[in-house]
């Protein structure tokens, strides 16, 4: 299985892939901006390594250009709403939307 994944990664074209999405929220998360964080998930990293981040207004969009691999996209607001999704990207663009909800 590992070899299959590896060959898929190596055979994929060397053009920029991307993780893109829209960020919205329900009530309770404020109407300010949302920080979208992209970090790399890898066994050799003891801790997450932050690669990029961007402030997005509510209902706004973002796009990160990446190489094949495993990533974590996290979103957070000043009011403390947060969420994350893990993304394994090999050769296709990944769409990662967020609808933030206030913690109960």
């Amino acid at each position: 299985m590992k070899w299959l994944l590896l060959s898929l990664i190596l055979s994929s074209p060397v053009h920029a892939l991307s993780i893109k999405g829209r960020v919205s929220s329900t009530q309770g998360c404020g109407d300010g901006k949302v920080m979208v964080w992209l970090s790399k998930i890898a066994e050799e990293f003891q801790q997450k390594e932050l690669l990029m981040h961007t402030l997005v207004p509510l209902n706004g969009t973002y796009e990160f250009y990446v190489i094949p691999g495993q990533y974590r996209v996290e979103v957070s607001t000043e009011k403390g709403c947060e969420e994350h999704k893990n993304v394994f990207i090999v050769h296709k663009e990944a769409r990662v939307d967020f609808v933030l909800k206030a913690k109960k």
Binding site: W37, K48, E49, L50, M52, H53, S76
Partner: peptide
């Protein structure tokens, strides 16, 4: 966002990797 980021990422103070 910097207060939150420092708790999540050890390299927040760098521009990236």
């Amino acid at each position: 966002w910097a207060q939150q980021g420092r708790m999540m990422y050890p390299n927040l103070q760098a521009p990236g990797a």
